[in-house]
Write a protein that binds this DNA or RNA. Structure first.
Lengths: 211, 211
DNA sequence: CCGGATGCGGTACAAACGTACCAGGACAGG
DNA sequence: CCTGTCCTGGTACGTTTGTACCGCATCCGG
């Protein structure tokens, strides 16, 4: 995700920085964890696996995080933040071009297709972590905020597309996309856009037409 | 799930059967596994935990199943079979009463509410196992059959309710319900029926009205 | 230039894991 | 009743796990 430039830390630029700043180590560990969860589920998360994936030593994982649960917590938060940022970016960048149903269908189809193409592991990890979130109250908050944010932005988009009841429809749309995405994740096949565009088209057209 | 009568095994009915028939042992192990997955995810599945939950000895789990993966496989198959049976039962018993949108909304709302009330753990386990299914080709088949069956029955119901495009709408409806159910599972709150009925109502009304 | 503080690599260890083994109890066929 | 087969309970073993520890390398303020 965040690709910090590998420039030297502060003033002296002679040698390649042997020691990375702690924030980057933390970020590397968290992102490695997300990839591992995406590939093998939360069961595959071990300190050793994370350390190897992140390219750090075993001690780093225990030094920067008090326990394994804390690593998983951080991973969920990162995925949620990531998803919010993505939705927000898509929205603010493209929402002004949404003025009817077709343009919204285009936007959603492209969003779904892109996400499944180049963030497959992250999406997968997101579902694993959602299920995990229910078991820990503090994660529940992050998860709930994620959902709320997505629905707000969906409602905004639906309003621009002409929905008569944007908030209710946002709930429907968000749940539908979640269900479709889960299906694509658990049963991966080519042709994501072709398969889902007609469904989104039909749903949005029906909702907007309905009083 | 399947509640075999606890009648004595064959002819002699004097003592309470000390040894259960192997099928029942297997079933007990599988159902214990489903409960454990529902509570703690696939990471919580260990031979020892399963044995204790099922009330059998550790050896039984290794005797009846060649490995831990095989236990998880059987659990997914059972959940899928369970879900198919439930959908089928609901359908055949109540579909004849479906003749308009209201009755279908009633049916779906009750189905959702009931399932989340008394099969919470199984539903939860179902999502965990769906994610697991993608990693093993043989499970993918069982998972795909599950999805196909659900969509067939949904299409049938939608046809009776007056949908102009039952197959396409079945895909939408199934994905929506899956998304709503996942939301309820990961963020449990009271008022399932009240929250979801308006959404189902709005969706179905819009789909049926649309050409 | 240098000393305290910070973070890392390597190693260590107890607990829990999957799985294998074995002696014995229960059952079916005769 | 006996005998072979099937299944179980208990135990054992090697591996992997989470976590703790301990010197040493690196950095920053002076």
């Amino acid at each position: 995700m965040r690709q910090l430039p590998s420039a030297p830390p502060s003033r002296t630029s002679r040698r390649p920085a042997r020691r990375l700043p702690p924030d980057e180590i933390r970020a590397a560990i968290v992102e490695a964890t997300i990839r591992i969860i995406g590939r093998g589920g939360t069961a595959a998360v071990t300190h050793r696996a994370v350390a190897e994936e992140a390219g750090v030593s075993l001690s780093s994982t225990t030094y920067h995080f008090a326990s394994k649960a804390e690593i998983v917590d951080a991973a969920l938060r990162q995925v949620a933040a990531n998803e919010i940022a993505r939705v927000e970016a898509t929205t603010t960048a493209a929402l002004e071009h949404v003025h009817d149903i077709d343009s919204l269908v285009d936007l959603l189809t492209a969003w779904l297709d892109d996400q499944l193409a180049d963030e497959w592991l992250v999406v997968r990890a997101g579902y694993e972590l959602q299920l995990e979130a229910e078991r820990s109250p503090e994660l529940e908050a992050a998860h709930a905020e994620w959902g709320t944010k997505v629905q707000e932005l969906s409602a905004h988009a639906l309003e621009r597309a002409g929905s008569p009841r944007p908030r209710e429809d946002a709930h429907i749309l968000a749940a539908l996309i979640d269900g479709l995405r889960l299906e694509e994740i658990t049963h991966p096949r080519p042709g994501v856009a072709e398969r889902n565009r007609p469904l989104l088209d039909r749903l949005l057209r029906a909702l907007v037409a309905q009083s």
